[in-house]
Every structure is written in structure tokens, then in C-alpha cells.
Simulated scan of single mutants.
Amino acid sequence: MHTVLIVDDEIDILKSLKRGMHTEQYSKIFASSGAEALESFAREDQISVIITDMRMPGMNGLELLRQVEEISPRTVKIVLTGYTQLPQILATVNNVEIYKFMTKPWDLDAELKVYIREAIEIYENTALEANKLISSEKKGKLYNKMLSESYEKVDHVLRLYDELIKALNQHHLFSIQALKSSDDKTKMNDVIQQMNDRVHYLNKIFELNRFAMKAFTLPEVEAHIELIFDKLDIPKVPLEVNTSENQLNYYDNFKMVTSIFTDIIELAHINGSEIQAVAIKTENLSEKHILHLVVDCVSNENLSEMLENHGKFVGAVLRIIGGKFYATQIEEIHRIEVLLPVKKKVFDSLI
């Protein structure tokens, strides 16, 4: 039986991996330090795969892998890293042979388990001399890939900043217009509450940007919406889902997507509107897909006022992340729509 060694100084991560990998058909060793990992090599006849974090106290991941390269060169190496560790990454590439670099956070089922199985196959089927996993050309590819991802991240932050300024300006404009039109204390309090709601929503969206990317499917989005209906005690309504996309994996900010969808449903509900139907649609657009939420609900005065005021600002904020918001009235029904771009899951390899 093959043995996989996983090294991370965060005990909670090791416990989580132990729970998530208990059904995998290979022996697993979990070590919380480089020294403990080397002791495992002394005890075991062979270790097929080692997965290690880079940033650890005492012996870091690079030092550990240098020693593993000396005592067990055939062990296939997988590294967990972050965008901020580019110097360590380059040092690792130049010193030891690495099969995969995984950027934190990673997905256990869609990424780590898959890469471990692939690494075991490499260990089984490839002789040491024929299996130079990172050649000089591949080192250059890896270097360019990491630089490209770093530049993309900077560009993304700058774009978010530009869009944030636009949203703040729009918030300021809405506030000034509302204050000028208010003529009594009661209306003034309503205006202040609207201002607070807008700032709260803007803060929430930017806070959600910090959540990890993860792999997910359309049925998971559907399940989350059904949970929201149960939580809000909303009577069951028709929930239409594009079943042709059920097996497609997305890789994006699942927490943000589902939170935005939840907000729309909650806004309709708390404004006293009866929700008639919900649909989740998808649209293929080059390397991205568009998730399209449609909520049909009965029109009322509160809902119309909310869409006229807060709804416009929701649209301005969603544009920051590339999304769109629409609210249209069709006779007695208000149709609220949210479109969010999400990435398709693609497993790439340097090999």
C-alpha cells in the first residue's frame, strides 16, 4: 500500500484533512513539523507522496524538501503555497523536483485528492531518471505563471478600487438627493436608514471578496437557495434550474455568489412580497459562465420603494464584481434578476 505524508503546522488543518481523507485507499501520515515528517521517513519503508506547507516554524517547507530529496528522491512532492511566497517558490523550484504547486486555499475533493492519486501513479510507473518533473523549461513556465497570476491579482485589486470609488460617488449622490427632498424629521430618519443600508451592503460585498475560491456545482447553489426558503419560512415555490449544467464544476467565490442570491430573496420577503417563482439559469461566455438568478414576486408599495432606492445601489455595487442587477414590473409581478460571472473549473498542470 502506498503512503502519503501530509505536513502542516496548523493542527486544525491536519484534523480537517484526516476527516476528509479517511476513505482514500492509501496509508496516511500527518505531521505538524518538518522534524516530525523526517522521523516518518526513518520509520517507513517508503513514502510515495509528500505534501507540505511552505511557511512553517523551525524547519520550513523548502528545508524539509531539500532533505527529502536526499533521503528519498523518488517521493513525489506537492507544495502548498500562497501568492506572497514567490521567493520561496522560486528557491524551491531551483533546489528540488516538484510535481504540483497548490495555491491556498485549495479544494479537497476537486484538487488535493485528485493530485495525490496522480502523484501515486507517477511514483508507481515512472523510473527516477526518466521522471524529471521540473526541467529548466518548466521552471521558466512556472516562474512566468506565478508572475502572471501576481500581476492579474494586482490588476483585479486596482479595478475593484476604481469601481468602489464609482459606487461611493453614487451613494453620495443618492444621499444628497434624498436629503434635499426631505422636509420633516420622519423622512430624515428614513434617509439616514437608507444611507446606513447602502454602506452596510457595500461593506458586506467587499468583505465577501476575502472568502476563499472553491469548486462547486449548480445543484449546490440550488440546495443553498432551498435552505434559505426553509430558514425564512417561505412557502415552497417552483424552483427552475438549468439541469443541463448540473455536472459542470465552477471555481469561484461560492460564499459571495450564494450570499448575493440570498440577499435578493430576503429583500423581497421582508418587504412583504409573495415570491411566485425562482429560476437559476446559466449562460456560457468564453472562459466564464454567467449564473443568472430570477425571482418573480408580487408587487407592493414597499417592494417598489425598495427597488427604486436600495435596488439602484445594489446594481452599482454588483457592477464592481462584474455583475448586473435588473428589476422590471410585468403587470402585478416584479421580476428581479441578478447576473454574476463565475469561472469554470479547469485542472491545469505544468507537467
Rank of each mutant, 00 (worst) to 15 (best):
G82A: 15
H172V: 10
A223M: 13
P238A: 01
K344H: 03
K345I: 11
M54V: 15
K214I: 13
I89E: 04
V346G: 01
Q276R: 10
L248H: 09
K15L: 10
N131R: 09
G323E: 12
K345S: 14
G323P: 08
G311P: 11
V295R: 02
S181N: 15
R43I: 09
K187E: 14
Y143P: 00
F30G: 03
N144W: 00
Y161F: 12
I29Q: 01
F206G: 05
E283M: 07
I264T: 12
L133E: 05
S27H: 02
L318M: 14
L218E: 08
D155P: 00
E163I: 01
R335H: 03
D233S: 12
Y250P: 07
P57F: 03
A277H: 04
E283S: 07
E308D: 13
S181F: 04
L133T: 07
N242M: 05
E283G: 04
F254R: 14
L112R: 10
E245N: 11
A212Y: 14
R210I: 08
N309G: 15
M213S: 14
R319L: 02
K185A: 15
R319C: 01
L65Q: 09
M146E: 08
E121M: 08
T258L: 13
P73C: 05
T81F: 08
P57W: 04
I260E: 08
L160A: 09
K138Q: 06
N169Q: 12
I6K: 03
K231S: 12
K153S: 07
E97R: 06
V157K: 04
N246C: 01
F254M: 14
Y83E: 05
A279I: 02
R19F: 08
S182C: 15
E152H: 00
R198H: 11
I165S: 03
D348W: 04
K138M: 03
C297P: 02
L160P: 05
D190H: 14
I89R: 03
A279G: 07
P341A: 12
S299F: 00
N196Q: 15
E305M: 11
K166Q: 06
Y83F: 14
D230E: 13
V257S: 13
V4W: 05
D9G: 08
R117A: 10
D109Q: 14
N246G: 03
K312C: 09
S40H: 04
A127H: 11
Y151A: 05
N95I: 02
K166P: 00
I98Y: 03
A215N: 13
V79H: 04
L285P: 01
V191Y: 11
A327D: 05
L173N: 13
K288G: 03
I330E: 15
V154I: 09
A215I: 09
A268K: 01
A91Q: 10
V157R: 06
A215W: 11
C297M: 10
I280P: 06
E266I: 13
G61W: 05
M21W: 05
V278E: 00
V237E: 02
S136W: 01
Y26E: 04
L5G: 03
V49Y: 03
D53R: 09
T217I: 12
S32C: 05
S299I: 00
I50C: 09
D233H: 05
M1R: 03
K145C: 00
T282M: 10
N284Y: 07
H156Q: 07
N203H: 14
N249P: 00
K113G: 08
P219A: 07
T328K: 13
L350P: 00
V49D: 04
